[in-house]
Lab assay of single mutants.
Amino acid sequence: NKSRCTICSKLAEIRHEVSVNNVTHKLCSNHCFNKYRLAN
């Protein structure tokens, strides 16, 4: 079950899903999750 990561755009296994204003951001790693948190 692979999806495209919101941060790095890599097609990968999604580890984190963050839902903001009915938009789901898919994040493939802790690294991308941290980058997402810093950016938002």
Rank of each mutant, 00 (worst) to 15 (best):
L11C: 12
S19P: 06
V20R: 09
H31E: 15
S29Q: 02
I7G: 11
V18S: 07
H16S: 04
N30Y: 02
I14S: 08
N1K: 11
I14R: 03
C28I: 00
S9R: 12
E13G: 04
K35V: 10
S9W: 06
I14G: 08
E17R: 07
C5N: 03
V18W: 06
H25V: 13
S29I: 01
E13T: 11
N40P: 12
V20S: 09
I7V: 13
K35F: 05
L27K: 02
L38E: 15
S29Y: 08
C32P: 01
I7Y: 11
K10I: 04
S19A: 11
C28P: 01
E13A: 07
L27C: 02
V23K: 15
C8L: 00
S9V: 04
S3A: 13
N34F: 11
A39R: 15
N30H: 08
C32G: 02
E13M: 06
V20L: 09
S29H: 01
V23G: 12
N34I: 02
K2D: 04
C5R: 00
H31S: 11
K2G: 03
N22M: 06
K10A: 10
L38V: 15
H16C: 03
A12Q: 10
N21W: 03
V23T: 13
E13F: 07
K35C: 05
E13H: 02
I14V: 13
R4T: 12
N22K: 07
S19T: 13
N30K: 08
H31Q: 11
H31T: 15
V18N: 06
H31Y: 02
V20T: 09
F33S: 06
N40M: 01
I7C: 08
C28A: 00
E17C: 10
S29K: 01
A39S: 14
V20G: 10
R37M: 06
C5T: 00
S29W: 01
T6Y: 04
L11H: 11
E13K: 05
V23D: 15
L11N: 10
L38D: 14
H25G: 11
E13Q: 04
S3Y: 03
S9K: 14
H16K: 08
S29C: 04
T6V: 07
L38M: 06
H16G: 02
H31L: 12
N40D: 11
V20P: 02
K10V: 08
R37S: 13
C8W: 00
C32S: 01
F33E: 08
C8A: 00
N34E: 15
Y36E: 07
K26M: 15
R15T: 10
T24W: 08
C5A: 00
S3H: 12
F33K: 06
L27R: 01
A39Q: 12
K35I: 04
N22L: 05
R15A: 12
L11M: 12
L38K: 14
N21L: 07
A39T: 12
R4M: 09
F33A: 12
K10L: 05
K26D: 02
K10E: 09
K2A: 02
T24V: 13
H16E: 06
R15M: 12
